[in-house]
């Protein structure tokens, strides 16, 4: 039974052609799917459709069998840019999803501290966003999406602003956390190796369509050695080739 189901979803911005074109995709409960594709191919748009932020012009999105027409509280979204509120401290930014729903309890603060230290941001809780580096800001945004423990996590290139080492650490933390909470994830990235390392399944998107669908059958939990294995590289190569393919070759459904 699919947890997230996207059925024939299309979207066109005002006065433009279809940016997302009849996309079908399903994610099982607790699965981690990655979406890769060239810049401008419609990944962010697809993610926003899945979140209920953009209404599909055709088709539909269902989560747990219920149609998504507007953003729902069980969905966590990490935007491509950190989108922090400048006038709030890091602490208040992370607690924002909670404080919009109800009064903040001490338990929420504990969870916030835990998440911030997981993100390597200890001691920065009282700072304001403009006192943080770009990578620190994006980690605050990730912590904000995780604080409500959403069932579905939609992430738009959350690690793009990070160095390789920090990124690898956070990839492991994210996998661990999602495994623990049984979170269903759709993760957009530009980095093929990241997609293979994180994903159970990888979709390659091109000009608004899913061109390639690849199951990553590497054992879990994955550790860093797997990155150097032949199987891992073969998987990366397959995605890489799919991205290189001219549109005509794979377009017949």
């Amino acid at each position: 039974m699919s947890f997230v189901a996207i059925d024939g979803a299309s979207f066109a911005y005002q006065g433009g052609g279809d940016v997302v074109d009849r996309v079908d995709w399903t994610i099982g409960e607790g699965e981690f799917h990655c979406l890769v594709g060239r810049s401008g191919c419609g990944k962010t748009t697809l993610l926003k459709i899945a979140a209920g932020l953009l209404p599909p012009t055709q088709g539909s999105v269902h989560i747990q069998g219920l149609e998504v027409r507007a953003p729902k509280s069980q969905i966590g979204f990490v935007f491509q840019t950190p989108t922090l509120l400048d006038w709030l401290t890091v602490m208040d930014n992370v607690l924002l999803p909670v404080s919009l729903k109800r009064a903040v309890r001490p338990g929420d603060r504990d969870k916030m501290s835990e998440l911030l230290s997981l993100m390597g941001l200890d001691g920065l809780t009282a700072r304001h966003p403009f006192e943080l580096s770009g990578g620190q800001q994006s980690r605050v945004a990730i912590a904000r999406a995780l604080i409500t423990e959403p069932l579905v996590l939609l992430m738009d290139e959350p690690f793009a602003a990070l160095d390789a080492i920090t990124r690898e650490e956070l990839q492991d933390d994210l996998l661990h956390l999602c495994d623990m909470r049984k979170t269903t994830v759709l993760f957009v990235t530009h980095d093929i190796a990241e997609a293979i390392y994180l994903g159970d399944r990888v979709a390659v998107m091109e000009q608004g369509r899913i061109r390639h669908d690849q199951i990553v059958d590497l054992a879990r939990p994955r550790d860093h050695d797997v990155r150097f294995s032949a199987a891992f590289n073969a998987q990366c190569l397959e995605v890489r080739k799919a991205m290189n393919n001219p549109v005509t070759e794979k377009s017949t459904p």
């Binding site: 932020l53 953003p71 729902k72 989108t83 509120l85 919009l100």
Partner: peptide
């Protein structure tokens, strides 16, 4: 930021 607030309900 508007989208963020919509997302957070």
């Amino acid at each position: 930021k508007r989208e963020l607030f919509r997302m957070l309900g």
